[in-house]
Design a protein around this nucleic acid. Structure first.
Length: 1067
RNA sequence: GGGCGAUUAGCUCAGUUGGCUAGAGCACUGCCUUCACACGGCAGGGGUCGUUGGUUCAAGUCCAAUAUCGCCCA
């Protein structure tokens, strides 16, 4: 193999096959040296194109899902950059609060270190180290895949510039009354001890039980002798916090029970019986599981169930919280009527308490029955333990406010969401209304219906890793409260925050107060970033540090919680571009004006609610209705070979670096683009590369504890089973560790062969041309070829090029990625390589015009393919540039040092030539028919045969100017009369074409068989067409052009049939 | 429970508003190591388009049921 020496102009000697690893390293350097992907704000009048990367979490290395997502973005970005747009692709990573904290905690625990013992600052340092490590890995992966992000602008969601944006956004929302603090039921994760938003809760089907517990009726039996009511519950342990029993008002038993109370067992609490529509009535014959299992009585535990909370609100029930933050039974969080009997349960875990309480009911003859019951239970997406609805103080964004939710809905394209939901109001209030378009369109409804059912967004997380909430709190007794606070609270009820005018607001902070108990008041001071405090028009504005010091001196302490990760992600298209004060970060000046709204957001569908919605709400809120992006492209998901979603726990993620290693980055990218369709998720069966032998083999699978099919952690080499290796699953799940004897094995997949072969094809097609072109010669250097005077093959390939450019332009605008890949494949492989290069082989060495055309076509091919396959095209670019000369009229291909910075080809309409394309297809069809006979007669490929043609066919052959001869291996073209006896006959367009000099002795039997088979086919075809034409319904109702077409087809098939029959009978 | 998507060749997938003999890649068969490419060329085999019913001159495509799988929401 030739060493790819790099000359100063970037040209390399071309090896026989494309070697991605060598090319990728060199090309990456050239891009870096040219700063090829850097963007500056657009000059006036220049069109812009921008994308912000969905910032990957710093929890782990990227997998193929990221590769897909970002490949699509790079295709768009490179395409628009070549189109001459000022193009920005903003890269970065996300701190991913809970996810990162969890992985770091786990790693520390492996070393025996506990987070709480380590302390907040030291833990954050450790997490920072993790972040640095994985951020570097992620950025390196992105670069290895060739992504043309503006690396100079790489951001992290906890960078100072992002922090300023987060602080300012929080401050403004707080000041505007859209952020509030309240005691609510939250989705509590007892394992990580933090609240989760609704979106972070995953529902899982659980095989559980329905327990039927008897609660004695207070004050003696009813008239019918009933002594108790039976409540049905899946969570008996929460009964300690029951504050009512509810039944449906339509229940026949309601009247007798009205006004009665029950005595809560164990606790001996007297609780009311209330009537509420929510309660499902018992009906053993119902098709609904709920009614089948219902007893008609519902225990109501407002502190531990969201539905019960609502019932409690309606009936003004007490709220008794019987659990601590770790999910154990506790009397420290609002339970103060603990009976002696109940005391025994305090301190138990929720699981133990469930067992113990059921046992207690059984022992006391109050357990009526137990039935198996499958129901869905919310689990933490992070720790996977069941969620505990838990009462606590949290911060919320009032996303249900019209300024957020309504704005998000009004943003939607009116074609995709014609009617606004009730109460949202019509579009047309602000700029971005009606401009948000989803591709594929069906996701517009997903987005809309989510907003219709949205609840306020819980943004506080009990974590250390993240943006700490910029609010300082203190609780004061009403008697100690300032007059300003009392004055503000006059206007409000309990648990409602009210703005206060105070010394703090006069110094540039925001001040709220709310009553938290009958006598206590909670005051909260929100302080903006230093840049905001300094700019404040408040009378006594100082600095953030001074203000914080003063607030803390006054007895306020900062809320230790941090913000939900998605709060900072929601600001990503703004914060990365310098909002709110780009003058403080000069490198960002002008970005917001040039590049926000961005052109498109590319993401997977799971993130529509978490991220897309919130970016829309925030961007519009802070930027006068301006959208963060106008298009949203939702792409497919990559599943493993068993149709399972790729996930860390299944260890079935594939590292793109493995694919780059086995196939190259361009192959990875091309194959991913090729499989990106509107609808279908993609299955990716993965093989393993043996690190000992290089063998590629299908791994051994096992079924894990949860019933999923996973790769066995340790695999054996197929050719030598004594050699072992660790699979990616083994590494991801830590079930096996790589050693010298048992190294880690890379993954690969045959799905990427397609892309690798294609890159190699481009490579070799170019090598062919390089051997035939010499652009430095006098004759070609300044030659301008006019298509009208060019040869048939040249006119054809230029017409096809024009068609291809037009098609790709259209497909790019519609995000039809798989069709882009197919269009490129068809043009480059089928047309340029298989047909054009074969057709010109005979003439290229002498036809100077053809050399110009070939050079131009190759140049255009590299440009067209560049967005998808940047490495191979950039590698070949200088070589092609060096040998091509002249130009083609109507085909603009201005020179450029790098193809990455070259102009997208512009092919004038004058190059379009449907007649030439039609004639070429005819010539190609004739050649194909001849090749079929050659193959059947086993004619040697190099043997040049003679064809004998009637005048009609002769005309085509003349028109085609040698193409038929080249493609069919014809040495001589003769007229029909000259055919020797025994010549083979094919029928083309109703005419007989004879072939001779095929073999030394013709096989008459094979010839007869072939013609008989063809006659059979043609008969079927004719009779099929006859059937259609004899159908009056078709002739009368189908569009006339289709009927005409059918008649022509019928005539052509009939002519072919007759000619073939004539040939057959001549034998 | 609600919504969305899928079911087409052995495998992985295309098939735009209904209209040429339902396509591609891999795999398979035969021939070819021809001076761009065996990561290749040429030729070929292989599909009752999940099932049932309907609309239509015409259904892989539209409608209705139904089965199976996946995802999202509750």
């Amino acid at each position: 193999m030739t060493e790819p020496a790099t000359a100063t102009d970037g040209r390399a000697e071309l090896a026989k096959a494309y070697v991605p690893a060598e090319a990728e390293a060199i090309v990456t350097q050239r891009w870096q040296a040219a700063n090829a992907s850097h963007a500056e704000p657009a000059a006036p009048g220049t069109p812009t194109y921008s994308i912000v990367i969905p910032p990957p979490n710093v929890t782990a290395a990227l997998h193929l899902g990221h590769a897909l997502n970002n490949t699509l973005q790079d295709v768009l970005v490179r395409y628009h950059r070549m189109r001459g747009h000022a193009t920005l692709w903003m890269p970065g990573t996300d701190h991913a609060g809970i996810a990162t904290q969890t992985v770091v905690e786990k790693r520390l625990l492996n070393d025996g270190i506990k987070r709480l013992e380590l302390g907040r600052d030291a833990f954050i340092d450790k997490t920072q180290e993790w972040k640095d490590e994985y951020e570097a890995i992620i950025l390196s992966q992105l670069k290895q895949m060739g992504f043309s992000c503006d690396w100079d602008r790489t951001r992290f969601t906890m960078d100072e510039i992002c922090t300023v944006a987060v602080r300012e956004a929080f401050y403004r929302l707080f000041d505007d009354g859209l952020i509030y603090r309240g005691k609510r039921l939250v989705n509590w994760d007892p394992a990580t001890r933090t609240a989760l938003s609704d979106d972070e809760v995953e529902m899982e089907e659980i095989d559980g039980h329905m327990w039927y517990l008897r609660y004695p009726i207070e004050g003696g039996p009813l008239d019918d002798g009933t002594t108790h009511v039976t409540v049905a519950t899946t969570r008996p342990e929460t009964m300690l916090g029951d504050t009512a029993v509810a039944l449906n008002p339509d229940d026949p038993r309601a009247e007798a029970l009205r006004g009665r109370r029950v005595v809560l067992p164990i606790v001996n609490r007297s609780i009311p019986i209330v009537e509420d529509d929510y309660v499902v009535m018992a009906d053993p014959d119902s098709t609904e599981a709920k009614a089948q299992y219902a007893s008609g009585f519902l225990k109501v535990t407002p502190a531990h169930d969201p539905n019960d909370w609502d019932i409690g609100q309606r009936h003004e029930l007490a709220v008794i919280n019987i659990m601590g933050p770790d999910g154990s039974i506790s009397d420290q969080y609002g339970w103060d009527d603990v009976s002696d009997q109940a005391r025994a349960f305090v301190g138990m875990s929720r699981e133990d308490a469930r067992t113990a309480i059921v046992a207690w009911f059984d022992d006391n003859d109050l357990l009526e029955q137990v039935r198996n019951y499958t129901h869905s239970v919310g689990h933490s997406y992070r720790s996977h333990v069941p969620i505990e609805p838990w009462l606590s103080d949290q911060w919320y964004v009032a996303v249900t406010d019209d300024k957020l939710r309504g704005s998000a809905l009004r943003a939607q394209n009116a074609e995709q969401l014609p009617d606004m939901p009730d109460g949202v109001g019509d579009r047309g209030r602000s700029d971005g209304d009606g401009s948000l378009t989803f591709y594929p369109a069906r996701y517009a409804r997903t987005y809309a219906s989510w907003h219709e059912n949205i609840r306020d967004w819980c943004i506080s997380r009990q974590l250390w890793w993240g943006h700490q909430i910029p609010v300082w709190l203190r609780i004061v007794d009403e008697s100690d409260a300032s007059a300003e606070v009392i004055d503000a609270l006059e206007r409000a009820g309990i648990d409602q925050a009210e703005p206060v005018q105070s010394e703090w607001t006069r110094r540039g902070a925001a001040h709220h107060a709310r009553r938290v108990t009958a006598t206590e008041i909670e005051e909260s001071i929100c302080i903006g970033p230093d840049a905001a405090v300094r700019r404040s028009d408040a009378r006594d504005a100082t600095t953030e540090a001074d203000l914080v010091a003063a607030v803390e001196a006054a007895g306020y302490t900062r809320d230790p919680d941090v913000l939900d990760t998605w709060f900072s992600s929601a600001l990503w298209p703004m914060s990365t571009m310098g909002w709110p004060w780009s003058e403080d970060f000069p490198e960002t000046e002008g970005l917001l004006e040039s590049f926000n709204p961005t052109s498109v957001l590319t993401t997977a569908r799971e993130i529509i609610t978490l991220w897309v919605s919130r970016m829309v709400m925030f961007n519009r809120y802070f930027l006068d209705g301006q959208l963060p992006f106008t298009d949203v492209f939702i792409h497919a998901m990559i599943q493993d070979g068993h149709g399972q979603k790729m996930s860390k726990s299944l260890g079935n993620g594939v590292d793109p670096r493995d694919i780059i290693h086995s196939h190259g980055a361009d192959a990875l990218r091309y194959s991913l683009v090729q499989m990106t369709t509107d609808t279908q998720d993609v299955r990716m069966p993965v093989n393993i590369v043996c690190p000992h032998t290089g063998d590629v083999f299908e791994p051994e699978f096992i079924t894990n504890a949860s019933g999923y099919t996973v790769t066995a952690p340790v695999q054996s080499s197929p050719s030598d089973p004594s050699k072992k290796m660790v699979s990616a699953y083994g590494i991801a799940t830590a079930e096996a560790a790589a050693t010298d004897d048992m190294p880690a094995a890379r993954n690969t997949s045959a799905k990427f062969d397609l892309g690798r072969n294609f890159a190699n094809k481009v490579w070799n097609a170019t090598r062919f041309a390089l051997g035939r072109l010499d652009g430095t010669s006098e004759s070609t250097a300044n030659r301008v070829v006019n298509a009208a005077q060019a040869s048939f093959a040249d006119r054809w390939i230029l017409a096809r090029l024009q068609q291809t450019v037009t098609e790709i332009d259209s497909l790019m605008g519609r995000y039809q990625f798989n069709q882009i890949a197919e269009t490129l494949y068809d043009f480059i492989w089928r047309d340029v390589s298989d047909r054009y290069l074969e057709a010109v082989k005979a003439t290229i060495d002498t036809d100077v015009d053809q050399q110009v055309v070939l050079g131009a076509v190759l140049d255009a091919v590299l440009r067209l393919l560049h967005p998808v396959c940047p490495f191979v095209t950039e590698t070949l670019w200088p070589n092609v540039a060096a040998v091509r000369g002249g130009s083609v009229a109507g085909l603009a291909l201005p020179p450029s040092e790098l193809v990455a910075l070259a102009a997208w080809p512009v092919a004038d309409d004058s190059l379009a030539d449907p007649a030439v394309i039609a004639d070429f297809d005819r010539a190609d069809a004739l050649a194909a028919a001849i090749r079929t006979v050659r193959s059947e007669q086993q004619v040697k490929p190099r043997r040049e045969i003679t064809m004998h043609v009637p005048p009609a066919v002769s005309a085509l052959i003349d028109t085609a100017g040698g193409v038929v001869e080249s493609l069919a291996g014809i040495g001589t073209v003769d007229d029909a009369e000259g055919a020797p006896p025994g010549a083979n006959i094919i029928v083309f367009e109703g005419e007989q074409v004879l072939l001779s000099d095929m073999v030394d002795a013709a096989d008459a039997g094979a010839e007869i068989a072939r013609l008989d088979k063809r006659i059979d086919e043609l008969r079927k075809q004719v009779s099929g067409l006859d059937a259609r034409l004899s159908n009056a319904g078709y002739v009368d109702n189908a569009p006339p052009h289709l009927v005409d077409e059918t008649r022509q087809q019928r005539a052509a098939a009939q002519a072919d049939l007759e000619a073939t029959q004539a040939a057959r009978s001549a034998l």
